[in-house]
């Protein structure tokens, strides 16, 4: 466990030494504020809930999370430090976990910094804070799933732009599988069971279900299995094409 912490600490200093973490946090805060207050009409709705705020997260993460995670492995590959890291007495899993946790912490910090929104709804009305808490948990899990996917694509290439684009496309697929316009299209010609099966692969389905305030074990299992699967694949890629 200790090497995991050491690697995570190094990654975090890396994020904050370069402007990546700051840029991500500032842009995330600006955009989430803009979309929930200006676009979705947070005040006009007159409801004490963060529904409009969380509804934008799948879309904001789609571009911002790959931007945070794209350097995770491709940078190591480009600089040649992968050789250094993997000849240290650490297992590839420790390195993968350390890097993943560090980038997840950056996203988590950005989420924590949205607390003024939470204060605002509590000042204006009396929202169900349990639901809001569940919303934050769901948002964090979703970010984790996107990040794990980005880790996987980042391990495939030394080019960060390629890592970014491929992970945006994969994440977009995970969103669209449950996006109402797409599921409505499917309903016309596919069996309802099939539509449900496709929608079950989507982050939207599970994210929205958690946002109702109930953290269902199925939703939890979904996000955790996406994370574990993507990180496992990362491990396979890192181990098999180390010298590339």
């Amino acid at each position: 466990m200790k090497p995991v912490i050491t690697i995570a600490k190094r990654e975090l200093t890396g994020y904050f030494a370069s402007p990546v973490a700051f840029v991500f946090i500032v842009i995330f805060l600006l955009l989430s504020g803009f979309f929930s207050f200006m676009v979705s009409g947070f005040f006009e709705r007159g409801q004490a809930s963060l529904e409009t705020f969380f509804a934008w997260h799948p879309w904001l993460y789609l571009f911002l999370v790959p931007a945070v995670g794209m350097r995770m492995w491709s940078e190591e590959r480009r600089l040649g430090t992968l050789e250094l890291l993997l000849t240290m007495p650490v297992t590839p899993w420790q390195a993968i976990l350390g890097k993943f946790l560090a980038s997840w912490a950056v996203v988590g910090l950005a989420l924590v910094l949205t607390f003024p929104v939470w204060i605002t709804v509590n000042y204006l009305g009396s929202p169900d804070n349990g639901v809001i808490f569940a919303g934050y948990i769901g948002s964090l899990l979703m970010a984790g799933a996107y990040l794990a996917i980005t880790a996987m694509t980042s391990a495939m290439t030394r080019n960060q732009v390629v890592a970014f684009i491929v992970s945006v496309v994969l994440s977009l697929f995970l969103i669209l599988a449950g996006f109402p316009p797409v599921t409505n299209l499917l309903v016309h010609w596919a069996a309802p069971a099939l539509v449900d099966a496709v929608a079950a692969f989507s982050v939207i389905t599970h994210f929205e279900s958690i946002q109702k305030g109930v953290i269902d074990s199925r939703d939890l299992l979904y996000f955790l299995s996406v994370i574990v699967f993507a990180l496992f694949t990362t491990g396979v890629i890192v181990r098999t094409h180390r010298a590339g």
């Binding site: 050491t6 690697i7 190094r10 600089l79 250094l84 240290m88 007495p89």
Partner: peptide, 29 residues
């Protein structure tokens, strides 16, 4: 790996760290 030290070809190191930070990281690992 614990028993050995390795200097890879082209001597890679983390560009965003200070020399002290990098060596401390290596020592900690």
């Amino acid at each position: 790996k614990r028993l050995m030290g390795y200097l890879p070809e082209n001597a890679p190191s983390y560009a965003d760290m200070t020399v002290h930070g990098f060596l401390s990281f290596a020592a900690e690992l």
